[in-house]
Simulated scan of single mutants.
Amino acid sequence: MTAAPHALLEVKAVAKAFSGNNVLQDVSFGVAPGEIVGLLGPNGSGKSTLLNTINGFETIDRGAIRLAGRRIDGLPAHRVAAAGIGRTFQLPSMPRKMSVLEVAVAAATAHHGIWATLVRSAAACRTEQAALHKAGQLLDQLLLSTVRDLPAAALSGGQKKLLGIVCALMAQPRLLILDEPTAGVHPNLRRDIVVALRALNAQGMTMLIVEHDMQFIREVCTRCVVLDRGRIVADCRPDELVRNEEVVRAYLGRIEEPELEEVLP
């Protein structure tokens, strides 16, 4: 699928190879403002490489990536983040000597960190107070206010993923990319993540989510883009996946008489 007009994120004819291995081949899709799009595909399909090209961790061989019409391919990761793309990671690592609140505040790109502490200018103090206020609001919204003073490294896996979302949101992104937000998460916290993401979307946040939990995809995503061997094989609603022959083939290969409803949305 080519990106629709006025897409917030536009990926057009993107290709990427490593040592002659074509990992991404002519990948094109768009994410409109306010959408939650699931990025799916079996292991080795190119999902991580695609995320890394969008975020600026990898360069593309050809094609174009635009955010709100502006080319961002070729920009370093910090400039892509400054342009408005936030990202969480599958296995978030948290510092041992910082509290949950301190980690959230440190993630604010407008916060001057140790410079603000040393200089203590009026502007720096205002920036610090604004970061503290925003961090407190996000920790409350993401259900982490009760653990705000605990060491970030002491959180459960699911709570670390929620804190990762808080940190990404501290930079006020226009697009939030989530890498397997529910992998290894306790069912209770999984429900909290679903509720939190729906609330963020209701406030206008646009999201691109890599996830293997198909029930989560059904609950959260409005559209799915499916990769297989570096190519897009489907761009459709979650409830259409089970009827797509290319998607079934990508996931199931030679498995005979599959129980499709147990494998796909």
Results as ranks from 00 to 15, higher is better:
residue 179 D to W: 04
residue 143 L to D: 13
residue 249 R to Y: 00
residue 257 E to C: 00
residue 187 P to L: 11
residue 215 Q to F: 00
residue 77 A to K: 07
residue 209 I to W: 04
residue 86 G to D: 08
residue 258 P to K: 02
residue 195 V to L: 10
residue 93 S to R: 15
residue 73 D to C: 03
residue 168 A to S: 11
residue 58 E to V: 02
residue 69 G to D: 04
residue 22 N to I: 10
residue 202 A to R: 06
residue 131 A to V: 07
residue 237 R to C: 13
residue 227 L to A: 13
residue 52 N to S: 14
residue 32 A to L: 14
residue 206 T to G: 03
residue 123 A to E: 10
residue 10 E to V: 04
residue 42 P to I: 13
residue 210 V to K: 11
residue 215 Q to V: 12
residue 156 S to W: 05
residue 55 N to W: 00
residue 223 R to C: 02
residue 174 R to H: 08
residue 191 R to T: 14
residue 55 N to S: 15
residue 63 G to Q: 05
residue 194 V to T: 14
residue 263 V to H: 11
residue 91 L to C: 05
residue 244 N to C: 13
residue 28 S to C: 03
residue 64 A to Q: 08
residue 146 T to D: 15
residue 28 S to F: 04
residue 116 A to C: 08
residue 16 K to A: 05
residue 89 F to S: 12
residue 123 A to Y: 01
residue 265 P to N: 11
residue 40 L to S: 13
residue 25 Q to P: 00
residue 215 Q to K: 11
residue 202 A to E: 10
residue 160 K to P: 09
residue 252 L to S: 08
residue 61 D to I: 02
residue 101 L to G: 04
residue 165 I to M: 13
residue 128 E to I: 00
residue 123 A to L: 02
residue 64 A to F: 00
residue 87 R to D: 04
residue 27 V to L: 03
residue 81 A to M: 07
residue 109 T to A: 15
residue 195 V to W: 04
residue 67 L to S: 04
residue 10 E to R: 09
residue 205 M to H: 08
residue 264 L to E: 12
residue 70 R to I: 01
residue 2 T to F: 00
residue 148 R to G: 01
residue 111 H to S: 14
residue 29 F to Q: 06
residue 225 V to W: 05
residue 168 A to E: 10
residue 28 S to H: 03
residue 233 V to N: 10
residue 102 E to I: 05
residue 138 L to A: 03
residue 124 A to H: 14
residue 143 L to H: 09
residue 167 C to I: 00
residue 69 G to R: 01
residue 166 V to N: 08
residue 212 H to W: 08
residue 225 V to S: 07
residue 104 A to H: 14
residue 61 D to R: 06
residue 18 F to N: 02
residue 9 L to A: 04
residue 140 D to I: 01
residue 63 G to V: 07
residue 109 T to L: 15
residue 177 I to T: 06
residue 157 G to W: 07
residue 47 K to Y: 12
residue 153 A to H: 13
residue 96 R to D: 07
residue 96 R to G: 10
residue 26 D to T: 06
residue 215 Q to R: 15
residue 231 R to F: 08
residue 205 M to R: 05
residue 24 L to H: 07
residue 254 R to F: 00
residue 177 I to H: 06
residue 57 F to R: 09
residue 40 L to T: 13
residue 53 T to N: 15
residue 123 A to Q: 11
residue 142 L to E: 07
residue 221 C to H: 04
residue 103 V to K: 11
residue 236 C to H: 11
residue 69 G to S: 04
residue 34 G to K: 10
residue 51 L to V: 15
residue 257 E to N: 11
residue 1 M to W: 00
residue 251 Y to D: 06
residue 59 T to V: 07
residue 102 E to R: 12
residue 228 D to A: 15
residue 33 P to L: 11
residue 184 G to S: 07
residue 237 R to G: 15
residue 46 G to F: 06
residue 245 E to W: 02
residue 187 P to R: 13
